[in-house]
């Protein structure tokens, strides 16, 4: 899997999300009409049939491998929150419009409500719980506190994930490029000014280093 193409959110869904959705939605032979049943042997070689029902899965999350059993229809967000007790990623819109559920998948920020858990096997996932090293906060987390970037805090996990990725790509040269980069994350308390200031602060520190 080393020559995997660079992921985009759309590309991810197009590339392999759909294949598992189809397989996952296929009805079991017993209750489905014969014509609707997807036979594993009919499937292309790179598509795996999962389910019906819960199926085992290993996910690499925050540097460790976690095993769980979830149905093919379970989103990554639901797997994190309901099966792995990682509730830092939030469910807000449940359709990829707000960014509160963002996680890093191989370093790329993704809305975890828009991905199926089984599609993430073999990928490296980072959630907000994985940003600090032990008790040592990442510079961005400290900057969020110093600039008061979190009022109610419900958007904060997604903001931090988005901003972490933004700082890595280097598209954080000035306030307006940071604002563009963060445009997919909504904050209802309206903390945007402080969020942008926190990111700018860290970007400046990195730039100077």
């Amino acid at each position: 899997m080393s020559e995997r193409p660079k992921l985009t959110r759309r590309g991810l869904l197009r590339g392999f999300g759909t294949a598992t959705v189809i397989a996952g939605c296929a009805k079991p032979t017993a209750e489905g009409a014969a014509g609707e049943t997807a036979q594993p042997e009919d499937l292309p070689a790179d598509v795996v049939a999962i389910g019906p029902g819960a199926a085992p899965l290993s996910l690499e999350i925050n540097g460790s491998v976690r095993s769980l059993e979830v149905a093919a229809s379970v989103t990554l967000l639901a797997a994190l929150r309901d099966h792995l007790d990682l509730t830092g990623s939030k469910e807000v819109c449940d359709r990829g419009a707000c960014g509160a559920c963002m996680v890093l998948v191989d370093g790329v920020p993704m809305n975890s409500c828009m991905m199926l858990a089984h599609d993430l096997e073999g990928r490296s996932i980072t959630t907000v719980e994985g940003l600090a090293i032990g008790d040592t906060l990442a510079p961005l987390q400290s900057a969020f506190i110093a600039h008061d970037a979190a009022q109610c805090g419900f958007c904060t996990s997604g903001m931090l994930i988005s901003a972490t990725a933004l700082l890595r790509t280097g598209d954080s040269k000035d306030r307006s490029s940071i604002a563009e980069g963060m445009a997919g994350n909504l904050c209802r308390c309206g903390s945007y000014h402080h969020i942008l200031a926190a990111i700018e602060d860290v970007a400046g520190v990195q730039g100077g280093a």
Binding site: R81, D85, L86, T87, G88, S89, K90, E91, T127, V128, E129, L131, A132, L137, Q141, F144, I145, A146, D148, A150, G153, F154, T156, S157, L160
Partner: peptide, 20 residues
């Protein structure tokens, strides 16, 4: 700075949505 911010930035803060 808020004294209750660390759980917000580490994802540890327990909201009603997170009660299990």
């Amino acid at each position: 700075p808020r004294i209750d911010s660390v759980p917000k930035v580490t994802g540890a803060a327990q909201y009603t949505h997170d009660v299990r």
